[in-house]
Amino acid sequence: MRLIVIAGIPGSGKTTIVKECCKGHDYAFVGNNEESCKLLEDDCKDYDFYPFKSPCARVRQFKYRLDLMEAKHPKVLISEPPGNCMEISSPMLNPIYINDRARIEIGPLMTAIDTNKLLEEGLSKRTTEGLRTWNMVDESDVIVLTFSEDISDEVRNNLRSIIAKINPDAKVLFFPDEKGTITECIFGNMGYYRPLNN
C-alpha cells in the first residue's frame, strides 16, 4: 500500500485537492472530520475519519486507522493528519518509516497552503499562523499552493523563492494549474524524503 499524507491548516484546500486530483484512481481516504470524508464518498473506495484526541495520541491514532484501512487493501491510502491540522505531520509518518516500510510505501509528505493567505500574512515565526505554516513548509516534500488561479507568474516565482529559503528540497506546485503533476506526486513514484534528511 502507498501512503500519502496531505497536511495543511483547516480551509487550506486539502479535500479539494484530493477530490480534483484523485478522481478515477483506486484510493481510500482518512480525514480528520466526517464532513471532509462525505465530500469524497462517491470517489474513494473507502473512507474513515479520526476522532479528536490529545496531541500525544496522534501517533498511535494514526497507526491504528492506517492498520484498519490497510486491511481493506486499497492501492493508495490518502490521509489528512489527525488532530486539529495545525501541527507538523512527520512525527506520525516516521514510526511507519522505521517499523513498516517493507509493506507500506510512504509517498511525499504534501502540504496545502492557501496562496492568498500566504501573500497576506507571509511566513514569520513571530505570528502563530506564520509559525505553523513555517513549520509545515520546513517538513514537506511537496507544497501545493491552492486558490492560485489569479496569481501572476512573477508572484509565483517570488513564492517559490520564499519557500526555497526555508526548504530547498520542496517541490512547489500551484493548484489547480498543476493538477496533473500533483496527481503524479500522489500516484507515481515520488517518495518520502525531507523529514528523513532535514
Binding site: V59, I88, S90, P91, N94, P195
Partner: peptide, 9 residues
C-alpha cells in the same frame, strides 16, 4: 529535540 523525528530517525 523532537522525539518523533530527530530522536526516532
Amino acid at each position: 529535540v523532537n522525539a518523533y523525528s530527530t530522536l526516532l530517525l
